[in-house]
């Protein structure tokens, strides 16, 4: 069995069918830009404020770019039973779910570079530490995608997936230290910030774009890998328990 043929074709089909469609681009890209624009205007800072806003818009772009479509499409395919066709194929569940999530990871990572490219025209990015920023973007995309997968396999209906996604996404945006530094959050909310994966991705990006990071970068990276692995394994467990009944 040439498993890579199955892997590649699942990835290509999902990219064509879902991720490169206009509604997904609008939700995954325009929404985070508008969101960040709102904070930018409110802050009253000029173009020099662009650099400080960049980690925020990158994280939100990844978060919305990855979770917006994956959680809905997996639920949709399961509901329409076309997902059963994948479960009947002679490929392992691990490989199948990696193939299903790869499209979202790539789309999320690509989304992250659009605000960076825009920022390059508005401000000086020569001081950015790309060796930290690029792996952080990739790991954030992986973690967010697996969060989307976890949401998808925890619900039965498409509308539940959308509602459940927002239940995670919006608190994450506020609590991960992007728009409000964690030390300025009420004491009882701070522990919550530290159990959210974007907190660590945002911390790396803030360090990479010169705003200063709170935790050493290796710890941030390790924690992102732990979150990714944990969410992926938890999702596989849920698929085995809930879908192969």
């Amino acid at each position: 069995m040439k498993w890579w043929i199955a892997f590649w074709n699942i990835l290509v089909k999902d990219m064509r069918s879902y991720y490169l469609k206009p509604p997904n681009i609008s939700w995954g890209l325009i929404f985070p830009l508008a969101w960040t624009g709102m904070f930018f205007i409110k802050s009253g800072s000029g173009l020099e404020g662009v650099l400080s806003m960049l980690p925020g818009v990158v994280v939100v772009s990844i978060l919305f770019g990855t979770t917006s479509m994956l959680s809905v499409t997996v639920t949709f395919e399961k509901k329409g039973k076309s997902f059963d066709r994948l479960l009947l194929a002679p490929i392992s569940l691990e490989l199948l779910m990696l193939a299903k999530t790869s499209g979202a990871i790539l789309f999320g990572a690509a989304n992250a570079f659009i605000p960076i490219i825009l920022a390059a025209f508005l401000t000086d990015l020569s001081q950015a530490v790309w060796s930290a920023a690029v792996p952080a973007i990739f790991l954030l995309a992986v973690t967010s995608t697996f969060l989307g997968l976890f949401i998808a396999v925890s619900v039965s209906e498409v509308f539940e997936a959308q509602t459940f996604s927002n239940f995670f996404r919006f608190p994450m945006v506020f609590l991960c230290g992007l728009f409000f530094p964690i030390e300025r959050l009420p004491v009882f909310l701070r522990p919550l910030s530290y159990v959210l994966p974007p907190t660590y991705g945002a911390d790396i990006l803030q360090g990479a774009f010169g705003a200063g990071n709170a935790l050493p970068m290796p710890i941030d990276f390790v924690l992102l890998i732990v979150f990714s692995t944990g969410l992926f394994l938890l999702s596989l467990r849920n698929i085995r328990r809930r879908w192969i009944i």
Partner: peptide, 10 residues
Amino acid sequence: CFCAALYGMN
């Protein structure tokens, strides 16, 4: 073609 690819056909 997609279903065939799931079985590793070139």
